[in-house]
Design a protein around this nucleic acid. Structure first.
Length: 843
RNA sequence: GCCGGAAUGGCGGAACCGGUAGACGCAGCGGACUCAAAAUCCGCCGCCCGCGAGGGCAUGAGAGUUCGAGUCUCUCUUCCGGCACCA
């Protein structure tokens, strides 16, 4: 056996072995339980980043573990290949997005292969290929015919210079990223998927997902946002016509305290008033500029302006002024809210600012009045006051009575409201799935018939950042109406890339199927038993996938299967330190790989310099980003230490759900461990079968804990366990211990363990060996150590026979000299004995 | 702003059901080997007091429950993720 550990040759050899046997190809096998392990597929951005390596290493550890546990395992890989970055790269490099994407896929695939992941490459798919996205189109036409996909207007960011729609990411401080022009909101026709039709089910089913983290379920629950309230109508007269302004509120009990109405700038009533009032028109115009995101909207200064219009209070003989408010969202509820300043913080601020009346109608813990400043107690539930016939009623009684009275007048009813909005899928962009609709002057919006699918996206387009590239291509959009055969235009919008990623997991079961979206093989592999990906996908991607799974279920593609992911592991982000040099106020970001750190005698950072000796400033730890130049390239790491070291460090450094802080020294330590393992194995040809009794107890205790941690998916302590076992083996070597160690480690570092397993003649293929289990006999102990506390403070320890009873334990504890010092002359009130753990004397 | 997390030595982290805080590793310090260095091996390593035995303090801050709290409850601070067109 070779003396030195050379990862490159070991890894090349192991990968060749797997490839020659096609080790990772999966087929349906009903003799074994199946385990479908899926990591979120990557966007082919150019090269792998650390987040990818972490995600796929975690998935691979699980895959290889379940394989050794006897499961029929599937772990596939594909490419989330449509998206905005390809268009940005195209503009920068004058290369078509398709070419850029395919090049990236080829390179990243080679990187994944060099990491030794147990992937079934025969199932590889890319969402930008017509044989994939035709099924996006097929499903869309089904939904369109059912009314589950429909067209209405939606609000987008509009760059007036480039005449193009911008993604939220492309709006920097209210301006277009390329032009710097002030971004406007614009209403354009769009297609929506009616996810709200499934809101109730998507919410209720969360309770049946025990394999999902509570935090993710809670976030989804709040996102769907079911609230019970009352829809209330405020009548008014406009242009000699009786109309009603509708609002939704969860606080109908405060209706008698409503002193103004606020409507969104896009609300018809606002637009009408603006036609008469130039000042209001300016304000409405201002509201329509700037932010579209909820985060921005929530933080802007609340502003308003009166429309001059009044509505009638539905239950009192009062007129209420209607204002336009920049904080009211047209997309949520009715686009209008009632203002109850006395009991709502935002309304309170608004009323103070614009000197609107504040009328308390609820008795709150601080009393019957609401003096400034605002106190949270004002918003609490209480009995009605100043509310006429409703006085004295509590929250529920008041809501019931008011809802009944409104209903009698035809001006209201109880209603369930959802925060969840329908999913707008239209994108005015090129690199995505063409929406399969033909616009015919005579027939309207006609879905493309199945026989004419896919509507193929041309791959030779280079977008220039202005307008929608497909809308400039007559050869794409000019077509005939499928119904009447007259000349017609294709839809030139493409689909949100979230559509692509909302069903790819099912397609992996049957990527070669060209007659259906999925076939019966999906019913074998689905649902995904273990899904792994970043916490940043906790809401959108996972919710859309749960929705589309239900849509596929309802199309009889996977009958009865509602949830796509049984178990979910949300991995933390990968962070790194960042450094910069300060040259007269200009920050020059230095990659951590090029920084040399000096430490003081206590190990703290004393100073840091670049390799050529310039002082650098430490900027703390954060996500790896281009702007701070703190990305660590996994390829450099693999080239230097090999895949096993990279995998081991990433698993060892942090539990999978936590953020991982990158450390070059830590990587060095992981490499040292593998080299020690290699050296130990190389010198192990004539070692005993079993270790000493103490070492064996240690090894099996650690193994027992490691198996428990494996179940908990706390892989970092499994890696620690492997180190502990090697430490024990170095004191007392054994074939048994080495065999346990190699198998325990094989999911994390498959190459080196593959090589050593064969080298030491344990067998031909470690992947086919059974997972190690602790030996109950090795765990037996005659004596146990107990800790003795006095008043909860540690004062000594005693060794007692395993079978010792309470009285014997207590006597031994009192006999301990140090314990006696603290107990002497005092009255022991109580003795707590925790078997196998401790004794606590309370004095 | 709203929703969801996180916080433990110089650093990453461990501590299962509320029961010895700091496993394992990194960095650091001391030693062996070496002409020297690297590599490797051995020892030390939370803070304070003490020659020592030992004692006190300590899990972001403040309170509470308990014989006993990193772990449970409440309040607060800071950082991170998401907020519907980044993926």
């Amino acid at each position: 056996m070779q003396e030195a550990y050379e990862p490159a040759s070991v890894e090349r050899e192991a990968q060749a072995f797997w490839e020659s046997r096609d080790s990772f190809r999966s087929t349906e096998d009903r003799a074994k339980p199946k385990f479908y392990c899926l990591s979120m597929f990557p966007y082919p951005s150019g090269k792998l980043h650390m987040g990818h390596v972490r995600n796929y290493t975690i998935g691979d550890v699980l895959t290889r573990y379940y394989r050794m546990r006897g499961y029929n395992v599937l772990q596939p890989m594909g490419w989330d290949a449509f998206g905005l970055p390809a268009e940005n790269a195209a503009m920068a490099n004058r290369v078509p997005p398709a070419e850029w994407t395919y090049d990236n896929i080829a390179y990243m695939k080679s990187q994944l292969q060099s990491l030794g992941f147990a992937l079934d490459w025969s199932r590889e798919l890319a969402t930008c290929k017509p044989d994939y996205y035709r099924w996006n189109q097929w499903l869309f036409t089904r939904l369109f015919r059912k009314g589950l996909a429909y067209k209405r207007t939606g609000i987008v960011n509009w760059d007036p210079v480039d005449q193009t729609v911008l993604a939220n990411e492309q709006v920097i401080e209210g301006r277009g990223w390329r032009t710097g022009a002030l971004v406007e909101k614009r209403e354009i026709p769009m297609y929506f998927l009616r996810i709200t039709a499934h809101a109730e089910e998507l919410l209720a089913a969360l309770d049946d997902l025990p394999g999902w983290p509570e935090q993710v379920k809670l976030m989804q629950k709040n996102w769907i946002g079911r609230s019970e309230g009352v829809r209330i109508g405020f009548p008014y007269r406009l242009e000699n016509e009786d109309r009603v302004l509708w609002v939704f509120t969860t606080r109908a009990d405060t209706l008698m305290g409503a002193t103004f109405m606020a409507v969104a700038a896009e609300h018809p009533i606002a637009l009408h008033a603006a036609r008469q009032d130039p000042e209001l028109a300016r304000f409405v115009d201002e509201c329509r500029k700037g932010a579209v995101t909820e985060a921005d909207l929530a933080q802007i200064e609340k502003k308003g302006m009166p429309t001059g219009l009044f509505v009638s209070h539905p239950l009192a003989n009062e007129k209420i002024p209607v204002w336009v408010g920049n904080y009211v969202l047209m997309g949520y509820g009715e686009g209008a809210v009632m203002g109850v300043p006395a009991h709502d913080e935002r309304d309170y601020e608004f009323a103070l600012k614009y000197k609107l009346p504040i009328k308390p109608v609820i008795r709150h813990p601080l009393g019957d009045t609401v003096p400034a400043p605002w106190r949270p107690e004002y918003a609490e539930y209480g009995v009605c006051i100043n509310s006429g016939k409703y006085n004295g009623l509590n929250y529920q009684q008041a809501v019931d009575a008011i809802a009944a009275d409104l209903e009698a007048k035809g001006l209201g009813e109880k209603q369930v409201q959802w925060r969840l909005r329908d999913w707008g899928i239209s994108r005015q962009r090129y690199w995505g799935t063409p929406i399969p609709i033909v616009h015919c002057a005579a027939c309207g919006d006609v879905p493309v018939p199945d026989a004419e699918l896919p509507v193929v996206l041309p791959e030779d387009v280079v977008p220039d950042g202005t307008g929608n590239p497909l809308a400039k291509r007559p050869q794409f959009y000019q077509t005939k109406c499928p119904q009447c055969s007259r000349p017609a235009n294709r839809e030139t919008d493409t689909m949100d890339t979230f559509v692509d990623s909302s069903w790819y997991f099912a397609r992996f079961a049957c990527p070669d199927q060209d007659r259906a979206m999925v076939d019966e093989r999906a019913m074998y592999w689905m649902p995904v038993d273990q899904y792994i990906g970043g916490i940043e996908h906790a809401i959108l991607h996972l919710l859309y996938s749960r929705f589309i799974q239900r849509v596929m279920r309802d199309e009889s593609l996977m009958p009865g299967l509602s949830e796509p992911f049984t178990n979910l592991l949300t991995q933390g982000m990968v962070l790194a330190e960042s450094y910069y040099t300060d040259a007269s106020g200009r920050r020059d970001w230095i990659n951590p790989a090029d920084v040399v750190v000096q430490r003081d005698s206590k190990g703290r950072i004393a100073s840091a310099k670049t390799k050529d000796g310039r002082d650098v400033i430490y900027d703390g730890i954060g996500t790896m980003s281009k702007s701070k130049n703190n990305g660590v390239d996994p390829q450099a790491l693999i080239d230097k230490y090999g895949a096993d070291t990279a995998r081991f460090f990433i698993i060892f450094a942090s539990p999978p759900t936590h953020t991982l802080e990158w450390s070059d020294e830590g990587v060095e330590g992981s490499f040292r461990f593998l080299r020690r393992l290699w050296k130990f194995a190389a010198s192990s040809h004539a070692i005993p079968e079993l270790s000493s009794k103490e070492a064996r107890f240690e090894i099996h205790t650690v193994l027992k804990q490691a198996n428990y941690d494996m179940q908990k998916q706390q892989f970092n302590t499994v890696a620690s366990a492997a180190m502990k076992i090697l430490n024990a083996l170095e004191k007392s070597p054994s074939r048994e211990g080495l065999s346990i160690l190699l198998r325990l480690l094989s999911p994390v570092t498959p190459h080196i363990t593959h090589h050593l397993w064969r080298e030491l003649k344990f067998g031909e293929d470690i992947m086919k060996a059974p997972w190690p289990e602790p030996d109950a006999a090795a765990l037996e102990q005659d004596e146990v150590e107990l800790v003795v506390q006095v008043n909860g403070k540690l004062r000594g320890s005693i060794r007692v026979p395993k079978a010792a009873d309470r009285a014997a334990i207590e006597e031994l504890a009192r006999a301990n000299p140090n314990v006696q010092r603290f107990v002497a002359g005092q009255n022991v009130k109580k003795v707590v004995v925790v078997p196998g753990r401790l004794v606590n004397l309370v004095i």
